[in-house]
Amino acid sequence: PQVPQCKALYAYDAQDTDELSFNANDIIDIIKEDPSGWWTGRLRGKQGLFPNNYVTKI
Rank of each mutant, 00 (worst) to 15 (best):
N53E: 12
D26W: 00
D26V: 01
F22G: 00
I31V: 13
K32M: 11
G45R: 06
Y12E: 05
A14H: 02
G48T: 01
Y54K: 10
Q5K: 12
Q5Y: 14
I27A: 04
Y54Q: 05
T56E: 15
V55S: 02
Y12G: 00
I31T: 08
G45Q: 10
T40N: 05
N25R: 10
S36Q: 14
K57Y: 15
G45K: 15
N53P: 04
L9S: 06
I58R: 06
D29P: 00
D29F: 05
E33V: 07
G37R: 03
I58G: 04
D18H: 07
G37W: 03
D16S: 12
W39M: 06
R44F: 11
Y12W: 10
D29S: 09
D16N: 13
K57T: 05
N25I: 01
Q15Y: 06
Q5M: 13
Q47G: 04
A11Q: 15
D26P: 00
K32Y: 11
F50T: 00
N25D: 13
P35T: 14
K46L: 10
N53A: 10
D16K: 12
I27S: 03
A11W: 06
L20H: 00
K32E: 14
G48M: 03
D26T: 03
D13G: 06
Y54T: 09
R44V: 09
I30E: 01
D13V: 10
K7R: 11
S36H: 11
Y10P: 02
N53F: 15
A14W: 00
C6Y: 06
D26R: 00
N23K: 14
G37C: 03
A11F: 05
N23R: 14
E19T: 11
Q5V: 12
S21G: 05
N25T: 08
D13K: 08
L20V: 01
A14T: 05
I58H: 06
I27V: 12
D13Y: 08
G48L: 05
S36G: 13
S21H: 00
L20C: 03
G45H: 11
K32H: 15
T56F: 14
L43P: 00
I27R: 05
Q47S: 10
S36M: 07
L49D: 06
D29A: 08
G48V: 02
E19P: 01
T56C: 12
N25M: 10
P35G: 14
I58M: 14
T17V: 09
E33Y: 04
Q5H: 08
E33N: 03
E33K: 05
P1H: 15
A8V: 03
N52T: 12
E19V: 05
D34M: 06
Q15L: 09
D13Q: 14
Y12L: 01
R42M: 05
P1L: 15
D29M: 08
L9P: 02
F50K: 00
I58Y: 06
E33P: 02
